[in-house]
Design a binder for these strands. Sequence first.
DNA 1: CATTTGATGTTCT
DNA 2: GAACATCAAATGC
Length: 201
Amino acid sequence: MSNRKLPLSFYRRQDVVSIAQELVGKVLCTRIGSASLTSGIITETEAYCGRGDQACHANNGTRTDRTETMYQAGGIAYIYLCYGIHHLFNVVTNAKNKADAVLIRAIQPLDGKKEMLQRRNKENINPALTAGPGRLTQALGITTGFDGTPLIANSIWIEDRQIDFGSSLVANKRVGVDYAGKDAKLPWRFYPQESKWVSQK
DNA sequence: CATTTGATGTTCT
DNA sequence: GAACATCAAATGC
């Protein structure tokens, strides 16, 4: 039960790309206020590194009110508003003042499917429910109000339920970061090749 | 089917 | 003002 929750030591390692790879297959869980537990298998992640990665908001020591969360020690949530509409969920990694993070781009629903359908105002369970960075946050009830929340507390956390995609896990270019020059080509996006629960390019 | 467009907060110019 | 780690609905074949 509680021993399945990933410990802070998982997040505070230095290699954000390895962490992004290992997060695929883990289970992202939320219990928001009095709502029921909602969770899903992480099926798509992207790594962002604060030093030398032009696609990262906090690259090259850039500090703003928004990115300050990424400079904290690993093991907390970095949630920001994208295009003024979508709440995007990231896992902060590495030590304090090392602005690394992993963007969660898609999940496969597990617990609380009814709750997720309500939040998304949908009738049927299909990839459009939770495959996409803006979609999964809405399904899980994650908003920018949870920015900086520790992932070892009881609102948002990640569990290891021994799910392994094995060799079907592939690396590819990240999505929507064409502006990042040569860094746009880095193979820092991870997902199981055969999974339907992955965002469309 | 494919392509375009509207929504719209934060950050940078 | 413009651009942005996006989505859904409208429009055009």
